[in-house]
Design a protein around this nucleic acid. Structure first.
Lengths: 200, 200
DNA sequence: GTGGAAAAATAAAGTAGTTTAAGAAAACTA
DNA sequence: TAGTTTTCTTAAACTACTTTATTTTTCCAC
């Protein structure tokens, strides 16, 4: 890839933003100036419980896992974020209070980071970003509402099939252990589901 | 209550909006003009699957239940909306596609309604409403993310206790059957949980 | 490319939550 | 205030999912 890399991440985020609002060149530059670039090696933590979420993350390469550990040390995955995904711990970021989440890179990853201060600056300097985030959150909300519904109404097998259909590009690059932690079941049971399904 | 009723609902929604943005009198009047008033008797449907969600609802009195029926005819509750809550089927409303949800009044209820067209007008005429909804959705998102996490990491008993602590004013006015449908368990099992808890 | 670690598969025993059924209590309707 | 319907409780049998343990497979760091 070489030195083209420095431009590519911004193109990705500009396109992401362009789904909901149009930016002129000047606005793009301003937006760009508020972003920081970051990276993390595979298995590296971007965030651990107790820390305050300093940034919103936009993934440009790799894959991040947002998760908690319960009191028995069992992992529960809130979301996976691959290229073109926004992520973070919104509760901690918004209120600037200690997080309860881990964020860890599952692959060598790169991302753009927007600090709380830059986030607020962005709304002041380019108010139409309110519209962008309004739309972004509206969409996320729809998918979380669906996920809650699936959780209270479907079996683990049905939820697994839905995940495969909805996020094939994520399913392909994560381990079954991580997928089980997202579905809310044990890896052993996911393994049973898969073997049962393959016998059909 | 008498004829004061006609003013009260707007005060409620103005205060709700004032959590995130300030409106002057002119803006309030404009906002008011885009709202419709509605009501429903106990047990009345506001929405049924197959219909397209025409409005976003802001409840000013009573209690609404947003739910689905699965293929076995079992109810699953997405949310309860009491006074000062916004509700609707956002997926259907946004995309103007048929809904899969029922919305039913659990009590005689009153609400303000914002049509899709008015919703869009609102953003054109009073752009800071983007900010209001950005914040509203941001908050909802935080609570749905929490709920997903509770669903995949906690037992039914723990989820029940959290609901009681978080929404005592809702727990008090709904039946256990409805609460069970929200928690994703059977009414029988909720009854067992309660009797077990009361023996401690 | 090899050794060590992590992930995945399989299976048996255990538990959280469901199903079915029937009676008791509460809550509407007339 | 009685009659009807709905909700709640209890309990026994059942199932989806967990736990624990062992073996096999995959992966990746050196």
């Amino acid at each position: 890839m070489g030195n083209q890399d420095s431009k590519a991440p911004y193109d990705l985020i500009f396109n992401n933003v362009a789904r909901f609002i149009d930016l002129n060149d000047e606005e793009k530059e301003l937006f760009k100036s508020l972003l920081r670039q970051g990276s993390a090696k595979r298995k590296e933590f971007i965030m651990q419980p107790g820390e305050v979420m300093k940034y919103e993350y936009f993934v440009t390469k790799g894959c991040l896992k947002v998760y908690t550990l319960d009191r028995n040390g069992v992992e529960h995955v809130s979301m996976f974020a691959i290229e073109d995904y926004w992520t973070g711990d919104m509760a901690s970021f918004t209120r600037q209070q200690p997080s309860t989440y881990f964020i860890k890179a599952l692959e060598d990853s790169e991302f753009l980071m927007l600090s709380k201060q830059s986030f607020e600056q962005l709304f002041i300097k380019i108010p139409k970003f309110e519209r962008f985030y309004r739309n972004l959150y509206q969409r996320s909300l729809v998918s979380y509402i669906e996920r809650v519904n699936e959780g209270i109404s479907l079996t683990a097998e049905e939820r697994y099939e839905i995940f495969l259909a909805k996020y094939p590009q994520i399913a392909n690059r994560i381990t079954q252990k991580n997928l089980a932690a997202y579905l809310g079941i044990t890896p052993e049971f996911l393994s049973m589901i898969r073997s049962k399904m393959s016998k059909r």
